[in-house]
């Protein structure tokens, strides 16, 4: 089993803060309005019930753990996802015979909890980080009991609903742009230096190489 999850994440760009460019030509007014709203507005829980919401947070902390961030600095994935569900935002595609996001999330969360009970005799919230990881890994590799899932396809829910929505929220946040060294907003000023190992002064400086990543293709069975 992968022990990758026990490693702590270390950013290659420890000194980079995309928001330091706020008052520079990299940010225009419309972008400032949009980003300010994202940072200042943490939505209140509206769609999921309290227990589902707590479970969602634990799941999000397993798929995108943020141990180095304080509660105030943490990207509130569960709040932003709950808001999306409350607003019933659609993405243009409803797969035939597949549940809508609003139907899939409560059912998927319940199934994750049921798998935790089946594997460890306790609910997901009572599990250690390592145990939580193993539950989700079993779901992604299909080593789970279809009964709990009531029509959801476990791996499909995990990748195409849960992980997809999680990364869409996480990597829309300036803190995530910092850790991957993304240039972030770039209008009206874009970039001049385009070649390999070339960087404009307003781009992130790589202080150390990214940590070795697990070889993805070896995971394929």
């Amino acid at each position: 089993m992968s022990r990758e999850h026990l490693k702590r994440f270390r950013t290659p760009y420890p000194d980079y803060n995309v928001l330091a460019k706020w008052d520079t030509p990299s940010f225009d007014d419309v972008t400032r309005r949009v980003i300010a709203h994202r940072l200042e507005h943490v939505p209140k829980r509206r769609f999921l019930d309290e227990a589902q919401y707590a479970l969602l947070r634990a799941v999000m902390d397993t798929v995108l753990p943020q141990p180095e961030r304080s509660e105030a600095d943490r990207i509130p994935l569960e709040a932003l996802l709950d808001e999306k569900l409350a607003m019933n935002l659609t993405d243009g595609t409803r797969h035939k015979d597949v549940l809508t996001q609003r139907e899939a999330w409560p059912r998927g969360l319940a199934a994750i909890d049921a798998e935790a009970h089946a594997m460890h005799g306790r609910g997901f919230l009572s599990l250690s980080a390592d145990e939580r990881h193993s539950v989700l890994e079993a779901i992604d590799t299909g080593r789970v009991d279809g009964e709990h899932w009531k029509g959801l396809v476990p791996k499909s829910f995990f990748r195409h609903v849960l992980l997809k929505q999680a990364v869409k929220i996480y990597y829309s946040h300036p803190a995530a742009w910092n850790e991957i060294g993304f240039g972030g907003p770039a209008a009206p000023r874009g970039y001049l230096r385009l070649g390999p190992d070339m960087r404009d002064p307003w781009e992130a400086e790589e202080k150390r190489r990214p940590q070795e990543a697990e070889d993805l293709s070896e995971d394929e069975t």
Binding site: S2, E4, H5, L6, K7, R8, F9, T11, P12, T62, V63, L64, P65, H133, L136, D140, K155, F158, R159, H160, L163, K164, A166, V167, K168, Y170, Y171, A176, E179, I180, G181, F182, A204, E206, P210, Q211, E212, A213, E214, L216, D219
Partner: peptide, 24 residues
């Protein structure tokens, strides 16, 4: 990130490590 997780499914610290290679 969406392409990565939908096709390969990394999660946890491994996902953040993968995404830290974004500039490479």
């Amino acid at each position: 990130a969406t392409t990565l997780v939908e096709n390969e499914g990394p999660f946890g610290a491994d996902l953040r490590n993968w995404m830290a290679h974004y500039n490479h």
